[in-house]
Write a protein that binds this DNA or RNA. Sequence first.
RNA 1: UGGGGUGUGGUGUAAUUGGUAGCACGACAGAUUCUGACUCUGUUAGUUGGGGUUCGAGUCCCUACACCCCAACCA
Length: 575
Amino acid sequence: MSTSEHHDDGSNEPSSTERVLNFIETEIEKDRAKPTWGNRSLHTRFPPEPNGYLHIGHAKSICLNFGLAQRYGGKCNLRFDDTNPAKEEQEYVDSIMEDVRWLGFQWDGLYYASDYFDQLYLWAEQLIMAGKAFVCDLNAEEMRQYRGTLTEPGKNSPYRDRSVEENLKLFREMRDGKYPDGARTLRAKIDMSSPNLNLRDPVMYRILRAHHHRTGNKWLIYPMYDWAHGQSDSVEGITHSICTLEFENHRPLYDWFCVNLGIYHPRQMEFARLNLTYTVMSKRKLLQLVQEKHVQSWDDPRMPTISGLRRRGYTPESIRAFCEKIGVARFNSMIDVTVLENSIREHLNKIAPRVMAVLRPIKVVLTNYPDGQVEYLEAINNPEDPGAGSRKIPFSREFYIEEDDFREDAPSKYFRLKPGGEVRLRYAYIIKCEKVVKDPNTGAITELHCTYDPQTRSGSDTSNRKVKGTIHWVPATHALDAEVRVYDRLFSTEEPDAAEAGKTFLDYMNPKSLEVVHAKVEPCLTEAPAGARYQFERLGYFCVDVKDSKPGKPVFNRTVTLRDTWAKLEARGDS
RNA sequence: UGGGGUGUGGUGUAAUUGGUAGCACGACAGAUUCUGACUCUGUUAGUUGGGGUUCGAGUCCCUACACCCCAACCA
């Protein structure tokens, strides 16, 4: 894509296609306008650490970085920040690549920070020879003490003034395995009294005997994030290195390494990470949910992971639209999770075929309908998409309706079925409830006896009658049984992260985040392919579970409900 | 208590750089509806506080306050 975003038509009114620029785009446009920019093209990167699955917060960063490259005709790399073999695994690498592709993006270069371990090592020696790095024998505890505090300056390490020769010898011995893990570090020699703690002689290398998913056992020393990230950007010719706000304090160090190495110097820019209500987003907490089995897996449909959202039925388009909608800024904000939910509703409304399903069935018998008669009624597949066509649904004497669609004691504004009341069956007839049949022991409703008006058949209604309510149904003899997983929010409080004293986010888990029901669905769903998304009319959007669904024994996941004005009225006591 | 950041309706995000505070979502009200969905119309509500400069301040100055980040050999 090219730079078609430069609108300069002189009008004050933003045209309908014009997007307002976010602060990063504004800065990029300034940079590109500088004479020093030359004819370079924009180059960004998405740099995940492969120590967990990607989540919706990463999607924001992915859409930002890849989106920028598309918008400005540039490139975007995928680079795994794999400098800590203790936590990183191939499984995560694979899932990350899958998720980025699924979101609809294709990276230009695929790299790993570990690709640069040799180069980084050479640069470390270069800094040692320049007298700007030293081998330190302080252990972790001592180093912490020497570092000082937020308000007090640190003290120089007693090893800070070793000769270049000694530093070089020691560093090479670190590399060659002469010292145990944690025995020594290589540190940059900057300023122990800097108010920015990151500049108080930060560690560049630590000794760590761990198997690395790519370099195996080749290395015994591993670079720290700060020592790897900017240089990786530099090697790849990244122009704008976009990261989250907590790295802002690291920028002076990012800059220091590039300057003191005398290498190409990308520009780091920071933006606020995504926070969502009713959601935890830290990888640590998501890992904990998985490891402690509070959810079934990383791709559990209740997880805010990309794979979880995918399995839940979210589309890539809806996630991209969401990321576009929430914007990019430097202010820590909290996005209402309903914004995400509305994004998927909006997309699925346009593309999802409609179908009828009854989650909690009550049987209805039409006492005046000829026994054994079957009619095939025409139903529209998607009113939002005329091209989707229609289908035939068998209709006969017995069928199921939703438990929720019948009330014995109905409030005045309830216009579904009630004793003596009338309602239209979607695509069928107007029926009247004549009798409620109950289990003599439990008092539970077992059946409803209704009559229908033959004049009211949909499409050929000659009665001219109107009823207030229309409900969905599934024919009893042709119904397909299906397992439906009714998902709800994983947490029952807006900010599970803000746990009160003595509690953790786990104390706020929603006990009803998953309810499994045995539903009756339209027969046409027998052939529903894995991953297919539907609207169950009047209920919500559901998708065929990709892992557990089997032909003839479908399993559906509820992606999201439809907007439910009635539920809101009732909750408000306005019914 | 040091340093670095950030404050615009309920939420998110703009404001041509000092010139009518706009957009989206939500909420509310109504229209429409064989999905209490969708769609459409309307209403609602904001510059963290206090000073100052100016004809004019969200924007500049001073001051106060609030919130976030930083003391891993994590990223």
